[in-house]
Every structure is written in C-alpha cells, then in structure tokens.
Simulated scan of single mutants.
Amino acid sequence: MTTVNRFTVVALSLTYALYFGQLGVINPYLGVFLDGRGFTSSEIGELFAVITLARIIGPSLWAGIADRTGKILLILRLGCALTVMSFIGVFWAYSFWYLTLTMGLMMMFWTAVLPQLEVLTLHTVEGDSKRYGRVRLWGSVGFIVLTVLVGQGLDFFATETPIYASMLVLSALFISTLALQQPGTMQRNTTQKGSIWRFLRHRVVMIFLLVNGLLQVSFGAYYGFFALYMRDLGYSGMETGLLIALGVVVEVGIFLIAQRLITRFGVWRLLMLCLLATGLRWWVLGTFADYFWLVFFSQFIHALSFGLNHSSSMQFIHHYFPSYIHGRIQAAYIGLAFGLGGALGNFAAGHLWKQGSGAFVTFTCASMCAIAGGLLLLLLKPEQMNQRHPLHQG
C-alpha cells in the first residue's frame, strides 16, 4: 500500500469511527433525551418512526446522483455538511412536529452518507474483504467509546447531553471527510442507466430485503427503549452504556473473522443463525431483564444480530450485483430494511411500550419478528445466495 493509500485508509477508519460514534449517541439515548423533554412512549415511537422513514428518501436520492456523476466523495462531504446544518435546529425544537421535522432532515442527510462511504471504502481497498473488515471495525470502536462516554455523562448532566455530544461528533465527522480521497478508478456510469427495479424484483433479492426488514422491525424496541428500560429497572447510565458497548465489542471481534465464516458456511446459513439468535436475544430481554448477568450475556448476541448479519449482507450485495449499481443497491438495502423496517418497528414498539408496562409484550413481538425472518429465509436454498444476479454482466 502506498503512503497516500495508507493515509486514506486511516482517514476512512476515522470517518467510520465518527459516523458510528454518532449512532452510539443517537440510537441508545434519543429516547432518554425525548423523555426528558416530556414526550410519552407513544410519541417517542412515532417520532422514531417518522425520522427513520427518512432513510428511504435520503440514501436512494443521493446514491442515484453519485452513481450517475461519479462524484461520490463530493456527495459524501455534502451529506455531512447538511447533516450538521440541519441538526442545529434541535436546540430550539420543543414541539413534536418541529423536532420531528428537524430530526427528519438530519436523518435524511446523515443516512445518505453511509452508502457512499461503503462504496468509497470498497473501491479504496480494491475489494479486499479482510482490509475492509479492519477499516469497518473502527465504526464499532467509535460506537463503543461514544456510548460509554454519553452514558456516563447522563449520570452527571441533564438529559440534553446526547444532543450536545451529537453536535460535536457530527462537526468532527464533516472535518474528517476533508481528508478522504476518491480512487481514480471510480468513474461515473455512462453506459448503464434506468431504474434498479429490474434488479430488485428478482425473487432472491426480494426475500433478502424482506428478511433484513423483519430483523430491523425487531430492533425497534431495543433502539427506542433499551436505555429507558434499563433506567426504569434501576440500572445507572454508566451500566447501560457499558451493556450497549459490550454488544459492540463482540461485534468488533466478529468483523475480524466474518470473511472466514462467510467463506466456510455461506451467506444463507449465517443469516439464518443471526435471525434465530436475535429472536432468543429479545426474548431474554423481555423476560429476564431483572437479572444483570442474563442481560450481560444476551448482549453477546449483538455480534450476530448486527455484526455478522451486516457483513454477510454486504458480501451478498458485493458478489450478487454488478459493481456499477452497488451504490444504489446499498441505498435500497438501507432504505427498505433499515428505513421502512426500522420505522415500522419503532412505531409498533412505541404503541406497545405503554410507559414501560408493555416491555414484555414489546420484546416478545420483536422476538417473533426475528424468527419470522428465519422462516421466510427457508423459501431460498443456500446456493441461491452464493450465485450472481441473472442480469449480472461481468
């Protein structure tokens, strides 16, 4: 690797750390922040659902522009800059709709960043899955550090702590993108045009997206209410932060060996394992959350729920589809699975939660969604996910 490439890989690692560091602030603690501003659990679920829907609009819009112009780095920087500008409004947004609009705009720009960052990274490391894993794991490191720091901060400061931390992290994220470089091999697509629907409507792809969508529906209770759940059960902010961080620590480990696991067992088998294990995880949280050690060990499953599932899904996308539409396919994956699936999960969890009295029902329904994803995956044969798309041209 040349000196320039080494510097770029370091800059990419820092960008991942900051991007997912922000995820470590907003995902666990947005519910605490909203609760501090007086919102009910139903309102929290609805707000989560509305802003999560922005994941459908943002990634697809920006990915289409990036794929056609080839200016992926410019789109990446613009997305980060607009994220910071839109997030500023949170400091003055106290009404439900004003805060929803502000957070929705921020989410639309912020979620558009990741598909471009993934494409940029895969091209920079020239398809080297092991090197990609090493770069990507810094996202987990950033998540861990920010989750623990903000969790501890909540023990000493007000529930507004997450938004001040977010402002700092998002500003640093934009600055880090200024150090990135776009590989000269990345060019705009001038020969392949039109909708990607012809790729998405294939049976294997539709089941893949539905399975991941169900998995993200199941995450609604965890992302929206885990920190509040732990607080109501008497756990400190520091303990909650460490529990969340533990899940990501084991996720880092799985990223380091994910490629070997994918090579040995294949995408289908690993996705099935992730879905069934996640179902067990939510059932334990809903049933035995009073027992610290059971919650502690259930967090180890996060290595499968997110880490291995994400690596396997990325491998499927990178291998199954032609490279010229990777950006738009990843945007569709994030928009439909994380966006639509996440929004449905947030909305349902908010209405089932009932200020904490519905925790068991909420996590039981989450468990059933993950298991349903596993049952749906049975409609495919393992070898079907190791082939290439019928429209793949090279």
Rank of each mutant, 00 (worst) to 15 (best):
A359P: 02
V284A: 09
L78P: 04
L105F: 12
R77V: 05
Q192F: 06
L61E: 01
F226Q: 14
L242D: 06
T83K: 02
A93L: 09
T124Y: 07
G374F: 01
W268R: 02
S357K: 12
G38M: 11
L273F: 07
L78E: 04
A332F: 14
A349H: 00
W283M: 12
Y132W: 09
G38V: 03
Y19Q: 10
S129I: 07
Q182V: 09
C274L: 00
Q181T: 13
L352M: 12
Q393N: 15
A258H: 00
G341W: 02
R134G: 03
H310L: 13
V249E: 02
R136P: 07
V249R: 07
L101D: 00
F288V: 14
S323P: 00
A165I: 11
L47W: 05
F300P: 04
L276N: 00
F48R: 06
T124M: 10
I317Y: 03
T2I: 07
V211D: 00
V135A: 12
A331S: 14
T8F: 03
M167D: 07
T147H: 06
V249W: 06
L173Y: 06
A112L: 13
G79R: 01
P59Y: 05
R6F: 13
L378A: 14
T15A: 09
I301T: 13
A11K: 05
F109H: 00
W282Y: 14
F300Y: 11
S95I: 05
W197F: 11
H318A: 08
